[in-house]
Structure formats: C-alpha cells, structure tokens
Design a binder for these strands. Structure first.
Lengths: 227, 227
DNA sequence: AACTAGTGTTAACGTGTGTTAACCGATTGA
DNA sequence: TCAATCGGTTAACACACGTTAACACTAGTT
C-alpha cells in the first residue's frame, strides 16, 4: 500500500477548515489542520508534509509570513494560498511563482484538488468511504446517516454528524470538550459550550435504541462514548 | 444533424475580432466574441464552448491568467493563444502543452483553422465517452441529458445542468453556496440564493429514482451530493 | 399581433437547523 | 451545608433552506 500524501492545512475559520480537511481526506490525503500560523510552523517541522495549504488571513502569523519563514529553510515545498476576495490579485500573484499557487475564496474542492495534483504531479486516487460502527448502529459519516441494525437510516444534521464522528473516532476514550468546541464551533466560549450540550442530548436520544451505548460526561474534561 | 462546434474567441481589437469571428463562422463554427478576459470567463461558464481562442494581451484579464483560471476547473478544454510578435516564443511554449497551442500574429485564417481542427480531433475521442455518473444515473453535460439506467434521457435546462455538473464534480464533498452563486448567477444576493434553492428542489426530484442519491444541505455552507 | 411552450425569477408560506434562554439536578469544594 | 459551578433538558427563537405556485420573459408558431 502506497503511503498517503501529507498535507498541512492552516485555516483559522474552524468550520471551513474542517470541511476542507474532510474533503481532502476523502481523496485519500493525510491532513493536519492548524488554526493559526504559529501552530502551522510547529506542525510543519514535526510532520514534514508534502504540500502546504495556507489561508492568508490568520491570527498569530499570516500565511505570507509563514510561507516566508518556511521558504527560508525549504525552498522546494509547494504552497497553495487561500485568499479572500478582498485581497487583490496582484499582491497574490507575486507569490504565484516557484512552486506556489493561490486560490480565491470561495473555491470548490475540485479546484483545490486539481491544483494540489498539479503541484505534486501525481494522479488521482479515489477512496470509498467506510462506515463506522458503534454498538448495534452503523454510521455513515459522508452521508450523515445513522442506522440501527437493518432499519432505515436516520438523517443526521451536519453538526450532529461531526460530533458523533469525533465521539466514535475516540470511542472508549475521553474526548476533550474544548477540542470539539474549537474544531466544530471555532471557539470555546460559554454559548458554544451550551450549544454543544444540546447536541449531546440529541445524540443520546438518537442512540438510545442500543442500551449499551452511553455518552458519559467527565466533569470538566469532556465526553466518553462507550458501547 | 450534427451540432455546431462552439468556439469562444477573446480578442480586444474589435476589428480583428470581428474578422476572425466571421471567417470562422463561414467554416460553420459557432463563435462567441469577447473583448476582454473577464467577459470571456463569464461566457466560458454560460456557453460551454468546445475550444477557446484567447488573445494574450487583453484588458481586465489577460489570456494566460484567464487560461489558468479556466484550467483550474476544466483541464481538458483545448486552448489556442494568439500572441503578438513582441512576446518571446519560450514564454509561450511553456503553455503549449496538454491541449494548448499558440499562434503568432499576424497569422492566416487557414493556420488558425488547421490548428482548431487538430486540437478538436485530438480531444474528440476522449470527449464522446465523457458522461458523468451519479448513482444509477448518467449525466451528459454537453447534451444536458440525465438518464436513469437504460431509460430514455430527460432533458435538463441550462441552469439545472450547470448546477448538477458542479455537484457531480464535487461529489461527496461540500460545494460552497456562494461559489455556485457567483459562477452560475454571477452574484451572491438574496434572490439568486432563493432561485438556487428552487433548482436544488428540481434536481432532487429528478434524481429521486435512485434512493441512494442525496443532496444534503450543510447549513450556512452549501450542498453535498452523495451516492 | 395573439398564442404557446419553455425557462428562469419572484413571492409566499412552510419546515428544519442551530443558538440562546431558562430552569433544573448533580457534583464539587470551602 | 451551602453556595458555586457544570452539565442535562426543554422550549423559544431567529434565520437558512424547502416547496409550490404565480409571474415575467423569450422565442418560436399561428
């Protein structure tokens, strides 16, 4: 089995970052997501990615500065910048040389994937999505469908699906509250936390057909899904 | 009766553009003329031409930039660049790969027509079998026909076909609302958004023969077509 | 010119999703 | 034990989206 291509994605809008990450993962890339430039720089050093996708507007360290720092120690790695429409093309085009490219927001995943493949000079690999199992349930994340045994699947909302996805991925382990809040809500504040509690309630209801399944709260830390 | 081959011609010198257009029309091509790169990009999206003839020097958006933008979403369409003598051959030759060609001004119509035919013959073989698959449906974008299994194809409208095209191209990934709105409607305002919703409904109805197919909404972001 | 069919937009109303608020019990630590 | 805090639950709410139908526009037809 060929090794996956490693991408480093730096995007501060958590929800958008998550969607891009997912999309790239379904195309069989290995994706590390960072929500600011400083973290991205650390991850760049530790993970040794094959390509970088950097949002230009980011807290702590913006995409251009980050790229400059990385270029100082690695002048080969391909970089794709994500830019808001407010940024003028000519500023960006200055960077579109020597292994760099850029994409204006909004863009489609298809566009991003085409550019990644162009820069890597590799051919596409498609991956079929596998469904996750939890107790007597089956969860198809891409379709956002939760099925009990052989019954008709229930359609979950985007938020429900994401939350459940992370819970299943960390099955029988404590999943950190703030981690989820940052990943799905983009912020770890009071209101997001309450909103998350509501979704935990919703998931508990939708998972109650299998009595073995529990979403256990660990006060002050997070939740643990067990089956 | 065979359909005419559609060309998109982008040339800012009006008189020259008109002469080229007329010459090509006498050869039974269907020609759309634009006098700048931005208009050409819009026309590319709305007309779905079979081949592009782009002047390199143009206001608003030059031929190379335009080609780059189009290549990001369509890596198959043949492109012929028209270049002034001042442009050096090596700059141009970088683009003479993978479905591209170029012509130095001044050129004869005969030269242009030969090159058009060369490029179309090269891509024709691949293009005929290029219908898209979604579940048990087959979608022929150029013909705007959607067929379920071996039944008679349904004719889609222009808008329906474009929207479906982008959904299929981004199958199993979230397709950004505002991207579609900007691409198909040209603006991301309230009314266009509602209009788009109507077309989503229409597509859902036309795709409901295969129950596995879903157009899932991701609140605030866009849609995900799954099969 | 009036008629027709086809396409896309606007309008109106209904539904679904996610956030906020309110009230509650449970857990914790002084 | 008592207050402080955290989480559970339900409901109200705002707004994004769904659906249908009426409307406007165009092009071809009579």
């Amino acid at each position: 089995m060929a090794e996956k291509i490693k991408l480093l994605l730096a995007e501060d809008e958590a929800a958008l970052g998550q969607i891009i990450k997912e999309s790239l993962e379904t195309r069989d890339f290995e994706v590390t997501l960072c929500d600011n430039g400083e973290k991205a720089f650390e991850k760049y050093q530790s993970d040794q990615p094959d390509l970088l996708v950097l949002d230009v507007m980011m807290p702590k360290k913006d995409g251009f500065t980050l790229a400059k720092d990385i270029r100082a120690i690695d002048d080969a790695i391909p970089i794709i910048f994500l830019t808001a429409k407010s940024q003028t093309a000519d500023v960006v085009e200055g960077f579109s040389i020597g292994g760099n490219d850029y994409l204006k927001k909004p863009f489609s995943m298809e566009e991003l994937i085409v550019r990644i493949h162009n820069l890597l000079n590799r051919t596409k690999v498609q991956k079929t999505s596998e469904s996750l199992a939890i107790g007597a349930y089956t969860f198809d994340f891409p379709k956002q469908q939760l099925a009990f045994k052989n019954e008709k699947p229930t359609q979950l909302t985007h938020r429900e699906a994401h939350l459940l996805f992370h819970l299943i991925k960390n099955k029988n382990q404590v999943l950190d509250r703030s981690l989820i809040l940052n990943k799905l809500w983009g912020t770890d504040d009071f209101f997001s936390a309450r909103s998350m509690d509501v979704f935990i309630t919703k998931l508990r209801k939708k998972l109650q057909k299998d009595e073995k399944i529990q979403i256990i709260n660990v006060r002050g830390f997070g939740y643990k899904l067990t089956d």
